[in-house]
Amino acid sequence: MLSWLVPQASTSARDIDWLFALILVTVGFWFVVAQAALFTFIFRFRRRPGVAASYISGERKEEKRWISRPHALVIVCDVVLIVGALLTWKAVKQDLPPADERIRIVAQQWAWVFVHPGPDGKLDTEDDVRTVNDLRLKIDTTYHFELTSRDVVHSFSVPAFRLKQDAVPGRIVTGWFRPTRLGTYDIQCAEICGIGHALMPARLTIETPAEHAAWYASRSAQGG
């Protein structure tokens, strides 16, 4: 459903949208039912001439049911949502599927530096390609990222990946994503990081392996 608004460009985006849909349907269904019951009662027991209102203490068994049964239902729905959330959290954050490649993301006031592994697919080698505000990824490739900051706390936010991860100076935060859709997408710092925070966007391009190799080749032709 969310993908109508923001494209799903990674496997995690699919998982997170599934969780959103589960919450929306569960909560939305009971919201509609509860409002329907409320308005039905308001209409059915509306004021009528000659009928006096009576006080209901809510102590009789058949009255208490109106509280206890929805209460039990809410708990059941909560458990369903919690299980859904934990499954998604495990899939997105706790499991670290084996990496095809690693990339490094360095945040600073007010730019993103991306270290791509280069044609050999390995970081910290001669052919690494560093870019400013320009992240290039291969489709259907599992990446582990190392996220850090040079100065203050930033947040690496990629709406199309449903990813928002703080970058903390002095720490290397590891995570993963697997791009699933070609195209260009937005990256934006999502943590107020100083006067230039609003001017800290970057561009994500997901390309085919051939396009990616051609890009590496063009970079090495320019001298990296």
Partner: peptide, 18 residues
């Protein structure tokens, strides 16, 4: 302000964009 190691240049670049 284009170089990944030019920390201060990278700071100034978005300011010029403002």
């Amino acid at each position: 302000g284009y170089h990944p190691d030019d920390t201060t240049g990278l700071q100034m670049r978005p300011m010029a964009q403002a």
